[in-house]
């Protein structure tokens, strides 16, 4: 197993993102290729889960687009992701919040962690 990690370490450039977890609202900026032009697109939504480690680490972002739930899975270390902003810290009790899929409207809201930003600001 160690040799596998060794290969991953050499070949995968670990990206540094701000700390985020399930329940947080994030905006992911990623590059897409349209024809032969490269363009940046963004995807804003709630993080449902983070899973895996090393090169296979991913996170799932869910948003409601035109009344329909859309989920996207991003590899955390993908070179296509240029920026990741954390817009809101949410209060959730579990690491994987798939129950959100069954909720609509007001029920699908996540309470915002208010003290977080001030605390981290002081620490810094």
């Amino acid at each position: 197993m160690d040799l596998l990690k060794l290969a991953e370490q050499q070949l995968i450039e670990k990206k540094v993102w701000p700390e985020f977890k399930a329940g947080d609202t994030v905006t992911v900026f990623y590059k897409i290729i349209e024809g032969n032009k490269e363009r940046e697109q963004q995807f804003q939504g709630v993080v449902l889960q983070r899973r895996g480690e090393g090169s296979t680490e991913t996170f799932t972002v869910r948003k409601i687009s035109g009344g329909i739930g859309v989920e996207r899975i991003f590899p955390t270390n993908s070179p296509k992701i240029t920026r990741l902003d954390v817009n809101k810290r949410g209060i959730v009790r579990r690491a994987r919040i798939f129950y959100l899929r069954d909720m609509i409207g007001k029920a699908a809201r996540i309470e915002e962690k208010k003290s977080y930003s001030s605390k981290t600001a002081k620490a810094k």
């Binding site: 197993m1 290969a7 991953e8 995968i12 290729i33 090393g54």
Partner: peptide, 13 residues
């Protein structure tokens, strides 16, 4: 040894 995934020059997994 096992399986993993890497990204190529175009960023494809």
């Amino acid at each position: 040894i096992g399986m993993t995934s890497i990204f190529d020059a175009d960023g494809i997994n």
